[in-house]
Amino acid sequence: MTDFVGRQLVCVRGGRVVFADLGFRVEAGGALVLAGPNGSGKSSLLRLMAGLAHPAGGVLAWGGEDVAGDPATHRARVHYVGHLDAVKPDLTVAENLVFWAALRGGSDGAGARTRTALEAFGIPHLADVPGRYLSAGQRRRLNLARILAAPAPLWLLDEPKTALDTDAAGRVDAAVASHRAEGGMVVMSMHGGSLPEGAVVLDLAAFNAGLEAVGC
């Protein structure tokens, strides 16, 4: 069975060790929740998993194969939602979404996938509104709709519920649940809130401790 595994990961940012000797394992249909105080490296770990940054040590493996060996294939199976929503103010909501849907999943049926994704996040009525008029929560909904508009097995969500109301937060939970039911994996960082069912919690604080003492 496919799994996504990290072993003995070390992350260095700005000459400072953020975490060291970190390991995790996510199985198909599984969810991993990253917890820990601000600055404990939740976002950094998600960026390592996405391939946006490279670990200073350790291995990330997909189905037993090191992802560094074939970064292009790894990119194709990852959906990353970061702190920035990547919404173009001059394009309408639909245009923004169709672009990403077509770039990742091909032009065929991009329009239909876009409509389904907008409905899943409750913003089909905004389809023709330019990005500049969206509120922070609406921009976040649009960014999350992007991951539904083109399928990928591994979702990396960095505090996905920031700026969202309870309705939208519920829609995120529903999307995560149905993605996992189809065998997808989810790694998300969050502060409080209800955990997805059967999620494994990884507390990053455990991997920060004692680094100062070692003299890193």
């Binding site: 946006l52 990119r75 194709a76 702190h83 990547a86 770039l103 990742r104």
Partner: peptide
């Protein structure tokens, strides 16, 4: 600035 570049780097396009 708006984060699109990160997503373009991650897109399955060279």
């Amino acid at each position: 600035e708006d984060g699109s570049l990160e997503l373009l780097v991650l897109a399955p396009v060279p």
